[in-house]
Amino acid sequence: MTASDDFAWEPLDDVDDLEVGDRRELSLASGKLVLVMRTETGLHASCADCPHQDTPLAEGMLDGSVLTCPLHFWQWDVTTGEPLGVAELPLEIFELKQEDGRWWIGMRR
């Protein structure tokens, strides 16, 4: 179990309107870019760029829980970051939580 204190939490605004299948690149207050996606199982967040060639994953395809990079078609399960198909590296996934009606994203300290 990961303690909430292990993370630095930043507010995540502008995600409530995301519908299933939608994804959006967001710039956090810290300057970090993340990709927020909604699947049937809820909201998920990953690094914004592909770990292969830094391609913006917002330009990729989200089908169910499978995210596909548009450049070399690396794929991941966005609920776990597990690589699928030809992907050689996992996708960094960030913790999310909802408190007082607001979404927060956790960066490991």
Partner: peptide, 19 residues
Amino acid sequence: VDATMRMLVVEGKVSPAEI
């Protein structure tokens, strides 16, 4: 190539490993 790959992967559920 990109349009075809998107169609095969997303709509056809073809694994990129097969292309």
